[in-house]
Simulated assay, not measured.
Amino acid sequence: MTDLQKRSLIKVAALSAVAAAAMVGCGKKEEAPAPAPAPAPAAAAPAPAPEPLKIAFAYVGPVGDGGYTFAHDGGRKALEKEFGDKIKTTYVESVPEGADAERVLRDMATQGNKLIFGTTFGYMDIIQKLAPEFPDVKWEHATGYKSGPNSATYDFRTYEGAYLAGIIAGAMTKSNTLGVVGSVPIPEVLRNINSFTLGAQSMNPKIKTKVVWVNEWFAPPKETEAATSLINGGADILFQNTDSAAVLKTAEEKGKRAFGWDSDMTAYGPKAHLGSAIFNPAGYYIKTTKDALEGKWATQQSWWGVKEGAIDMVSMAEDVPAEVKAKVEEVKKGLADGSFSIWKGPIAGQDGKELIAAGTVADDAFLKGVNFYVKGVEGKVPGGK
């Protein structure tokens, strides 16, 4: 075989091998590509946190008054502690009763507050005016008596604390003359003066009570002047229905005794201090806010006292006799369980005429209309007959 023949055979064999490989390749089934992994489901967006309930307080005095407004602001702080970021509270202090109050309360409503507390009697008619204009706002008014579809009233039986102070004063006085610095002659204040006197007379029937009015809730210079006048008039123990600690401070300076009012005022006159008749609004504020958050808020007229834990006599002085302290505790227990009534007859008016018959207990309607002095209180009710 020639070289040419050999090369031809090799070429044919190579071409045959290529063709065979091609045929095998054409007969092979292609594998499908692996499916792409399914995309992970998108994480659900977190539900937006509910907006906090905006709550505003209008105060008639400064938060540092040591008494009435200080107690209300303590209640506001208790709210924040109880509900945390579920609520947002703000306040405006020293809001006079009148045109300024309307401006402040209206601004609170327009700023998105849905629960507004007006903490003094003089805001009553203003709130009644504003409530229909802002029907989505829940209005709460302290110490008043008018309410509406979206406005409620709340008050504290401060006359119970006044009576407890009277028990101590009646037992501790040496002159049998007590003095009271009065703020504004409305039923609330008259009720407190009379209850203080009734408490004192329960321990000492010879008690006489003198009253000097300052016609303001918070007016330390006037309160000081009134307290001094009462001391000069023979009173050796002072009581007050004003918002500052000026009366207690004056008693401390003059060597007399006195009570704290609305808040524990011991620090303002430790030597003069016989005890503090306090109110604690925290429980009411917490209940009302809880109702608002849960959609259960309803207009009502509330009046809380010793029974609800809103009124107390605290920090009684060491020199108050044990039997007097025991009497105070006994009356507190009776007020709490309903077995004792302060305004139970016979009770006579200043002129000696019967106001409440023996064995009869005055109802709340009677108490809310007090416009007189009981027997033993000297002077004339301002504006009375």
Rank of each mutant, 00 (worst) to 15 (best):
N232V: 06
E378L: 12
A365S: 08
A348T: 13
A169G: 05
A317H: 10
D100S: 07
K29H: 12
S8Y: 04
A99I: 03
Y123H: 13
R257P: 01
E31C: 00
G25T: 09
E80H: 04
E354D: 13
P321A: 14
V314M: 09
T120I: 14
L9S: 01
K333F: 11
Y91W: 14
M203T: 02
V381I: 10
P33F: 10
V381H: 10
Y59T: 03
E102A: 11
A235C: 12
A258C: 15
K138L: 15
F259A: 05
K114R: 15
S315Y: 05
T228G: 13
Y68L: 08
N192T: 12
V370D: 00
A298K: 15
P185S: 11
A322V: 11
P149K: 13
V324R: 02
F366K: 04
V212S: 14
S151L: 14
P46K: 09
D73H: 12
N194T: 03
G170L: 08
K375Y: 09
K290D: 15
Y68A: 04
T153S: 15
E225L: 09
E140I: 14
P41M: 00
G161H: 07
K307V: 04
A322N: 05
A219C: 11
Y163P: 01
G376D: 01
R157Q: 11
K290S: 11
A19Q: 03
A358R: 13
P96E: 10
Q128A: 12
A219Y: 10
P187E: 06
Q128P: 12
T2E: 08
K333V: 09
Y159L: 02
Q128Y: 09
S151N: 12
G75Y: 06
Y373A: 01
A226V: 12
E308T: 04
I278K: 08
S8H: 07
S263Y: 05
V374K: 02
F196K: 00
A58H: 04
G179T: 06
Y123Q: 14
F372D: 00
T69N: 14
E93R: 12
V18I: 11
E225N: 15
G384C: 12
K129M: 06
A152F: 05
P46S: 11
L105C: 05
D291I: 00
V211Y: 07
V60H: 02
K353I: 10
A317M: 02
K129H: 12
A162M: 08
